[in-house]
Each structure stands twice: as structure tokens, then as C-alpha cells.
Computed example of a mutant assay.
Amino acid sequence: MDFNFSDDQQQLRDAVARWVDKGYTFERRQSIVAQGGFSREVWGELAELGLTALTVPEQYGGLGQGAVDAMVVMEELGRGLVMEPLAQAFVASAVIARYGSEAVRQQWLSAIASGEALVVLASQERKARYRLDVCDAKASRNGDAYTLDATKNIVPAGDQADAFIVPAQLDGKIALFLVEKGAAGVSTHGYSTQDEGRAADLLCKATPATLITADGLAALTLAQDVANAALCAEGVGVMEQTLKLTTEYMNQRKQFGVVIASFQALRHRVADMKMQLELARSMSYYASLKLGEPEAERHLALARAKVQLGQSMRFVGQQSVQLHGGIGVTDEYVGSHYFKRLTQMEMTGGDTLHHLGVLSAGLQDSAGVFA
């Protein structure tokens, strides 16, 4: 099996890396943080690069690329700590392309591809504790029309989004709906997250909605798996840059007249960070390659990946802070922002313990050395 990236994928990586280096500097990021943690201008630049169109089918104005291409992009955005939620474009295009009616596809996929519409997944509820099958939101049907009553929390860039993909109970089972921000009864409460990004709580009261699919749990599982694959790839990029910053600091910081990079105990800790990074990278590749598999296999594969990524992100972030000392947690130093991002990512899309539970529930009688 060839694990090398194609020439097109390498060119894509290089293009995104150049934009991050020149167009998304730490100073620009800090100015966006001061404005609330989301920039529509940056979202437009991502669209100009073709990134919002990356996984949208070609017949709807997209580039029709796959999961590995999305992974390559997310790694580079992770290195630059880009806050704009490009992964949501991958999630929305995957769900709408697979489950939406032709009318829904025609209306939304081209708008997602052009960057004109930011469509985000609004699935979390306070008592769900990461479980996708726990949903208190209610949908009502009146002929061919639907209305929603729902409260969703921690919606990525929710007060900046143009539409939401919302799960709700319909006739005793979860269905998936698309809600436009300008629809009657929609309100959002936006706030900054701990990693300086943007999120919001979404409230729908008798809000008109468009049905995407009545098979909502399967579609929601796909959405979460796509989001977690993107998160894993982004985490690899964040960890890679964190390790780079740490080694650069150790080669400059001196104690007892020598750089601390010469201390054997500290070198061993850096080696452990590198090992955790490479374990995470291999599982991120695994996660992206498994996105095309049947639901049960895909979902367990993403849980395995998220367990490893969660362990690696926590380890790399915390070791980086320890090796930096006090400067590692100051806002003025870029490394502290990588640490905050890694810490929040471990708890996004299901934390490590949640995904360990998913894997435990998926074990069969034949699992283990006697299989």
C-alpha cells in the first residue's frame, strides 16, 4: 500500500501552508480574538483558496476531493491555529450530499462551496454528555412543513453562521433538519471559547425548518465522524507546531551556562512528545481512511483515533508547558495558545473517556487474544 501523498495533495498542502505563514500570523490571529474569535474576511480567504469547496461534489460547484485532501488541509490550519471552523464545511457538505434531497443540495451545496454560506452542526445539548442518541429537541409536522423547538449548545461560530444542521425528535425518532439563521424564532447567544474561538447557544421556538433526512441518527453519526476526523488532523498540526516551538525554546534557553536542550532528562521528555505525535499522526491517517467504510466500522475507527489523539494532545500540551516553564502559560507567548487549543480539542467531539466507552461497548465476545 502506498502511503505517500500525491503531487496534487502535496501542492495543496504547500498552498495552505503559504497562506498560513503569510496571511494568518499570530498578530492577525490576536486581532481576530479581540474582535470575538471569528473573521468573515478570513472565511472569504479560505473560500478563495477553494477550501470551502474541497469536499463538495463537482456537480454542485465543488472540487469533489476526498477525506485525505481534507486531512492535509486541516493539518496545516492546525499549525497556524486558524480559528475559523472550516471543518464545518466538510461536515455540512458530507451530510447534505449523502442525505439531502436534490432541492436541498441545489440550494445549499453551491453556497457552501463558494463560501457564501457558513452551515454548522448544532447537535450538542447540556445533558447529552457527548451521546448522539440523547436529544430533547422536538419537531412538529404540518403537512409538508416542519417546525422546531430546540436548544443547542456550543455551536461552532453559531452567532456568525448562516444556517444550522439540527437534530430533533420526529415521530419518536431523531431526524435531521436544516434551519436558516433568519428564520422566525431563531436566536443565538455568542461567546468566546477557552481556546479563543467562537461558539454560541442556539434557541429555536416554533422555527420553520427543512427536513434533511428522517434517518437522523445515521446522518448525525456521519457528521460527528467527519468532524472528529478533521479534529484529529488539526490536532496533528497543532502538536507538530507545539513540538517545534518547544525544541526551539530549549535550544535558546540556558541554565548553568548551557542550553537546556543538552540535558538528557529533558531530551527524553522531548522524545516522548515526538512519539506521542507520531502515534497521533498514524491514527489520524487511519481515521481519514476509514471515513468511507460502513457506519459501524467507521464509528469505531473514529473512536479509536479520538482516544489516541486525546491522550497525545494532553501529553504534548502539558509537556510543552513544563519544558517552557512560566512563559509557557503567558498570553504574550504563542505557545500558550497552542496549549489551550490542545486542551479544548481533547474535550471536543467526545473526550477520551467517552470514546473509551464507545470502544468498550463495541467489543465482541471474540475480542482479545483468543479471537
Rank of each mutant, 00 (worst) to 15 (best):
V307E: 09
R341T: 08
S262H: 12
S123Q: 15
F38S: 03
V307K: 12
G172Q: 08
V91T: 09
Y338M: 06
T210V: 15
E27N: 11
A92M: 11
K205I: 01
L342R: 10
S366C: 03
D272C: 04
T147P: 10
D215P: 03
S39I: 00
G100A: 01
L118V: 00
C135K: 09
M283L: 15
Q65M: 14
R341I: 00
K340Y: 03
R253S: 14
K244F: 14
L12W: 09
D8H: 08
G80K: 02
Q241L: 09
V20R: 10
K340Q: 08
L178K: 04
R281Q: 08
M347A: 15
Q194S: 12
V329K: 13
T147V: 12
K244I: 09
K181H: 10
L176N: 11
F370D: 06
Y130G: 05
L302D: 02
S288V: 10
A303I: 07
V226R: 03
L202V: 12
S192Q: 15
F263L: 14
V270S: 03
D21L: 13
D159T: 09
S31E: 14
Q9P: 01
T246D: 00
E41K: 07
D69V: 01
V134M: 02
A230R: 01
L291M: 13
E76Y: 05
V238N: 15
I260G: 05
D162E: 06
L266K: 14
V155R: 06
V179E: 08
G310A: 04
D7W: 01
S262F: 10
A150I: 14
S284R: 04
A230L: 02
R129I: 04
Q88V: 04
Y286S: 13
E58K: 15
A371K: 06
D171V: 01
V42F: 05
R79G: 05
V82M: 10
F164D: 09
Q124D: 15
L46W: 06
A301Y: 03
A137N: 01
E297L: 13
A227N: 08
K254W: 00
S288G: 12
T352N: 00
G61R: 05
S114M: 03
Q107N: 02
D2N: 12
A296V: 09
Y338H: 15
D7E: 13
M313K: 04
I32V: 15
A168R: 05
L54Y: 12
T348E: 12
K138E: 11
T193V: 09
L220N: 02
E58D: 09
A94K: 05
L176K: 07
D149K: 01
Y146G: 02
F256I: 08
S31G: 00
D195E: 11
R267M: 12
G328E: 07
Q194D: 08
D195N: 13
V120D: 10
G237P: 04
L245G: 07
D351M: 06
A229M: 11
Y286M: 10
T188N: 02
L211F: 07
M347N: 13
A223E: 07
F3N: 14
T343D: 12
E45T: 05
F177C: 08
A168W: 01
L121G: 10
R304K: 13
Q194K: 06
L277I: 00
D136F: 10
D351P: 09
T348Y: 12
G185I: 04
S123G: 04
Y333C: 06
D159W: 10
A122M: 05
N153W: 13
G61F: 03
R281V: 04
D136V: 11
G143H: 07
